[in-house]
Design a protein around this nucleic acid. Structure first.
Lengths: 339, 339
DNA sequence: TTAGTCGATGTTATCGATAACAATTCGGTT
DNA sequence: AACCGAATTGTTATCGATAACATCGACTAA
């Protein structure tokens, strides 16, 4: 398909306004000293011609960019999309445009995205910390010419700044919750732990905290099912078959926890009296209409905001710290009605 | 913050491999006839130097791009993120990278995104059809130099191709469902209809189909609350106060329907025996663990795939049709247990 | 009057690649 | 030996902007 003819360039605007290219460039960027009259003429000419600047040329020439690359594992996961909202809300008013890529938790896809995005020489790059990073990705990042920020993970301090919770703290928090209540037959239910490294670290922290108290954590996980409600339900069924006397379960996330909850409800186990259930993320707080799940609330939007603020600081060369640890809060639910 | 020194360019690779810039360019793009030995040397030199092509320069020079711009209203809305998955899955294997922007249903934000993305001269642009489009946006699109595709809306055929359902058909489908069952006290519950034009058209189609059967649709909507479960619940409460004898409700989407459902369950109204409830999207099919809501299923992933396929065709100049209408299916639920 | 200053605009080189075409090499023909 | 065409590699111009500096006139100060 072929679309209209002539592309309007600075030169065309300059000709129409009766000035040089440079003057047009300055007017449109709001740079330099240009008289009011000339500004008016140039703007009018640009409008009349419908001039659209070519960012490829502009950024190439100035070696500056207003684009920020963001790579997250999954767009449909509300967790990441809320982090993204925080990023957008902070960057957009400052004139920076975010470009989003989805890695699907796949290291190769992430690598390709990093390559593609860096090849546009962005003003900054924000990456999710949860994915395993390929050697190629590491070396691309090592040679970057813009600030890089790690999201969602504050334990692994790889780049210029990190914003996210300590997943190890999260694991300990949940362990403490169970131990305080004197629970001892504790299980963990999760999926795709090999892909989602953060979840993996929460799991390990839970396991070792419990081990320190002489408790052996029973983990029911699988790698080939999605980290969603249906899987939570399915694995909980398995768990209850294997060990019907379990009295506490920590789920990888809230979605899986709600799935598990529905099964526990169905077989008549009272939550939290007979069995304690804890999710992760706090997404259920916003979504649930009746069921209030006990969960670890993570300030998702704020993580995005802090990351974006850090980026802005780095772009403007301001001095700064190198990480922001998101506060975690264990929120008690009222789970008597299953979903 | 200042990041390392020298940026590696084609010239550096050329020098190290002992060939000209042009040869390096050809090798790395896989173009032209280059001897195996030269290819080897060039690739090795590029690897050793850690060369990363500068897409700004490349695309500027060739006036070609491998980037595809996608603008959706909301990233956290699972509906759009599933469309996106279909797009990504189709384009990525063909070497096209998608860059995503979030318009938040705001015409000005959408306009700025269109401007920013077009100024990178992408290979194509995919836009959601649901948002009102500003005059500026229209004129930017009119002057585009790449194919443009409209997503999620097949009624308004503005661009080079449209992929999505007919929202008017959806409204009629729901009307038919109610009428077949002899229901006559019918209500509609929705939010932000001014922003989401597609929802608005579904609503109007429902209203006029019912009017044709002599039925007056009662609409309970508001503009200042999110299109989510809590709002569905809240508006359903209002509705039931205003008109307790209502026997059918169509909700803007599944999330709102589930919110409404929980309230109906709470006040003891049996669904679907006493009152019929229909959602929209079919997202509940995947998410619900126990509650199966009656809903209009939209093939979200497939919409993304069809749109991406059309784009690929246009890029390669192949002849083509100008729209794909997504099939809709009204799926019966088993709603006896509220969420 | 004359240099100095400032504001407004223009000139030239450059950013890092690719297109289009030119040049070279080389084995095979006649 | 001279020539030819295919395969390979190089040269030059260009993409559309911006940086850095040059210019020019008007106005001020000595």
């Amino acid at each position: 398909m072929s679309l209209r003819g002539k592309v309007i360039t600075l030169q065309d605007v300059a000709a129409r306004a009766g000035v040089s290219r440079m003057t047009v460039s300055k007017v449109l960027r709001g740079a330099g000293n240009i008289s009011a009259e000339t500004r008016r003429r140039v703007k009018q000419a640009a409008d009349e011609l419908g001039y659209l600047p070519n960012n490829l040329a502009g950024s190439l020439s100035s070696r500056k960019s207003r684009m920020v690359a963001v790579i997250i594992p999954s767009i449909s996961d509300i967790v990441f999309s809320e982090v993204l909202s925080g990023i957008n809300a902070t960057l957009r008013p400052r004139g920076l445009q975010t470009f989003i890529g989805e890695s699907l938790f796949e290291p190769e896809t992430e690598t390709e995205l990093i390559r593609a995005m860096l090849s546009f020489r962005p003003a900054g790059i924000l990456l999710n910390g949860g994915t395993a990073r390929s050697a190629d990705a590491e070396s691309l990042l090592a040679r970057r010419t813009c600030p890089a920020i790690q999201l969602w993970d504050c334990d692994r301090r790889a780049l210029d700044f990190s914003a996210g919770p300590s997943h190890e703290e999260a694991g300990r928090l949940v362990a403490g919750h169970f131990l305080e209540r004197g629970l001892r037959r504790i299980a963990y239910v999760g999926a795709e732990l090999k892909k989602d490294l953060c979840a993996g670290r929460r799991h390990l922290a839970l396991k070792s905290s419990l081990a320190a108290a002489g408790i052996d954590l029973l983990s029911v996980t699988c790698e080939d099912r999605p980290r969603q409600a249906v899987t939570g339900r399915f694995l909980t069924e398995e768990l209850m078959r294997m060990r019907p006397d379990v009295d506490a379960i920590h789920f990888l996330n809230d979605a899986m926890a709600l799935g598990g909850l529905s099964y526990l409800h169905e077989i008549g186990l009272a939550v939290p009296d007979r069995i304690s259930v804890v999710g992760f993320n706090g997404t259920s707080l916003a979504n649930a209409v009746r069921t209030r799940l006990t969960t670890v609330d993570v300030p998702r939007t704020e993580i995005g905001e802090k990351a974006a603020q850090a980026l802005l600081q780095m772009i403007t060369e301001a001095p700064m710290v190198d990480s922001w640890q998101a506060p975690l809060e264990l929120v008690q639910g009222n789970t008597t009605v299953a979903i």
